[in-house]
């Protein structure tokens, strides 16, 4: 079966065409519900411990609004590009889909580089390590956990791109792409709260 003919037979929303696909999408949504509580607890801890800085630096001294702004812009854009990838998938345009996914991965990597640079600066120049104070522990736990999610997302989407190249777009691969994009949006939504509650509020004092 040629690729084109195969694609023609593919239903319009391939991620929801099979019961397995629908299960996967719904299950992942529920997982995100659980993740909300996970991040909620991390946020709560951060809020509870934000003033326990001991001798270490405070948020006002540490945070740079410009780095945060750039990171935010990158992640917001990557969320948009992953939506475009899903649209391309619905149009059965594999080439576009892969391109948009690629852009998403690159933006995700950019975000990670920025975050690693930021952490490096804190540790090397501000003496703000994981064990410095309760504030620092809760900061790195929250922001680092989000960063780990981004890193995992980058790896995951890259792996899926390889799979698409090999297996093509099918009712098995489509739900995976859809779910990965949900995950990516979720990371973005979490970041919205991180920049608001950690960085902006930290800057306000």
């Amino acid at each position: 079966m040629s690729q084109a003919a195969h694609l023609d037979k593919l239903p319009p929303e391939p991620e929801k065409a099979t019961l397995e696909g629908r299960n996967k999408v719904l299950g992942f949504w529920l997982f995100l519900g659980g993740e909300t509580v996970l991040f909620g607890t991390l946020f709560a801890t951060f809020i509870a411990l934000r003033n326990s800085v001991l001798d270490g630096p405070t948020g006002i001294e540490l945070f740079s609004l410009s780095i945060t702004a750039i990171a935010t812009f990158i992640l917001l854009t990557s969320s948009l590009t992953s939506v475009f990838a899903i649209q391309a998938m619905h149009h059965k345009n594999i080439k576009n889909m892969l391109t948009w996914l690629g852009v998403t991965v690159v933006l995700g990597l950019g975000f990670l580089v920025l975050e690693i640079y930021e952490f490096y600066e804190y540790v090397a120049h501000d003496g703000f390590g994981f064990t410095t104070s309760a504030f620092s522990s809760s900061f790195y736990a929250l922001v680092g956990f989000h960063g780990a999610h981004v890193a995992l997302g980058v790896l995951w989407i890259s792996l899926l791109m390889l799979q698409i190249k090999k297996k093509g777009l099918t009712t098995v691969t489509a739900p995976k792409i859809y779910v990965a994009s949900l995950y990516w949006h979720f990371i973005d939504v979490v970041w919205v709260f991180i920049f608001t509650i950690v960085y902006l509020m930290g800057k306000v004092g």
């Binding site: 993740e35 996970l38 607890t41 801890t45 411990l49 620092s136 522990s137 809760s138 736990a141």
Partner: peptide
């Protein structure tokens, strides 16, 4: 369960990586 997972991570971090979440002496609670 996610709440428990986070709490247990904190305990492990405190114990294994010298974090300060629940260590009163270093500002934990």
């Amino acid at each position: 369960f996610p709440a428990l997972a986070v709490g247990l991570i904190y305990i492990s971090f405190d114990r294994l990586f010298d974090a300060n979440f629940f260590v009163t002496a270093t500002g934990g609670n």
